[in-house]
Simulated assay, not measured.
Amino acid sequence: MSMRRREFTLGLLVTAGLQGLARADEGVQHEERALMGTRVRITLVEADAARRRAAFEAAWTRMGALADQMSRYREGSVVRQLAARAGGAPLAVPAETMQVLLAAREVAAFTGGAFDASVGAYRDWHFGDDAEGHAAEIADAQRLVEQRRLVGWRRVELNSEARTARLPTPGMALDLGGIAKLPILQAGLAEIARSGVAAAMIDGGGDVVCHGNPPGRDWRVGIRDPRTPQRLAGVVALRDGVVASSGDYERFFDRAGRRWHHVLDPASGWPTQGVHGVALVARDIAAVNGLGAAIMVGGLQRGQRWLAQRPGVDALVATDDSTWLSTGMQARLTPAG
């Protein structure tokens, strides 16, 4: 029996130790909504009820608007417009989307194309939980071969000064799902900070951003064990930082003795194999954004080389055979419970 992303979301990353704080301090409040194909949960620590309300609304409004810009499913989104105009004239794009497109190009260059937002051209995969209501479906092998010619991050034309983007070949398409979520969550967190709230966390179905701290403690974030996703591998303490997760347990279905999941190898269009999940912890989202998906494509050894060039990133990588922890993750990951 397969379990889709929606059924797993709340256990992907959990905040531990806040329940007791919530009972002791009425200033702690949680809100949760569906956004970006998952459940997003905001936790605020703020005594003033009016300020909390303003912060919640500002964050939800900002994140919703950005998600609409960058969704591959939303009619009229920038991503849909770029695909519709592929082979034609450049498209003027909002500043936030341009920043994400530039970030996608940077991580693609850093990983030698292991991360590639142009995998949107592999449009025949469906995992039974997308916004258009498709049933789970394995892509046709011949179609993947044909679509492969439409994939290639170097071909995406970006003009940061004019703030335009262009896909040069009809049929090209982008999928920003692996690179847009963290900036969108960060934008929501910035709205909360502007509202004057001193401490907040946003958990977006596997990706967590936070600033400030609950009184007298750090945020505690539980990291799921990718090889046994029903369990936690451990807990990390976090303040003013980010946890980013990628895994084959997020959107998937099981068929013909194999797991078919949404992280696709740009070189083939098939779901990645070998790495089941990656969790990355860092101070800034730029250090980790897109890197988890790239490690799932590139494998553990290439991932270790990339991580060696990102000394501020602590990592957990689960493969078929074992779970590897960087030195920093070994030091910070503590048992759950």
Rank of each mutant, 00 (worst) to 15 (best):
M1F: 14
S2A: 15
R4L: 11
R6D: 11
F8R: 14
L10E: 04
G11N: 02
V14D: 07
V14W: 04
T15Q: 13
L21H: 10
A22S: 13
A24G: 12
D25A: 15
V28E: 01
E31Q: 14
R33P: 03
A34N: 06
G37L: 02
R41L: 08
R41Q: 13
I42E: 00
I42Y: 02
V45K: 05
D48H: 07
R51Q: 04
R51S: 05
R52F: 00
R53L: 14
R62N: 08
A67S: 12
M70R: 02
R72W: 09
R72H: 11
S77L: 01
S77P: 14
V78K: 00
V79W: 04
A84T: 04
G87C: 00
G88P: 00
G88D: 00
A89H: 14
P90R: 04
L91I: 09
A92T: 15
P94V: 02
A103E: 02
F110Q: 05
A114Q: 09
A117Y: 03
A121L: 00
Y122I: 00
R123S: 11
D124Q: 15
W125D: 00
H126P: 14
H126R: 07
H126A: 08
D130F: 02
A131G: 11
E132D: 13
E132A: 14
E132L: 15
G133Y: 09
A135G: 12
E137Y: 15
A139I: 04
D140S: 14
R143K: 13
L144V: 03
V145R: 14
V145H: 07
R163Y: 10
T164W: 10
T164A: 01
R166Q: 13
R166M: 09
M172I: 00
L174I: 01
D175I: 00
L176P: 01
G178Y: 05
G178D: 02
L182T: 08
L182N: 07
L185V: 01
Q186S: 15
L189N: 03
A193H: 15
S195T: 09
S195G: 13
G204I: 10
G204F: 06
V209I: 06
H211Y: 09
I223W: 09
P226D: 00
P229N: 03
G234Y: 11
G234L: 02
V235N: 11
V236K: 01
R239E: 06
D240A: 07
D240N: 15
G241E: 05
G241L: 06
S245M: 08
S245G: 08
E250G: 12
G257C: 10
V263G: 01
T272I: 08
T272W: 05
T272F: 07
Q273T: 15
G274V: 12
H276E: 06
V278F: 00
L280W: 04
R283K: 12
D284C: 13
V288E: 04
N289E: 08
I295N: 04
G298Q: 07
G299S: 13
R305C: 03
W306Q: 06
A308H: 03
Q309W: 12
G312S: 11
A315W: 02
L316V: 01
V317N: 07
V317T: 10
A318Y: 03
S322G: 11
W324N: 01
T327L: 12
G328M: 08
R332N: 11
R332Y: 13
A336F: 14
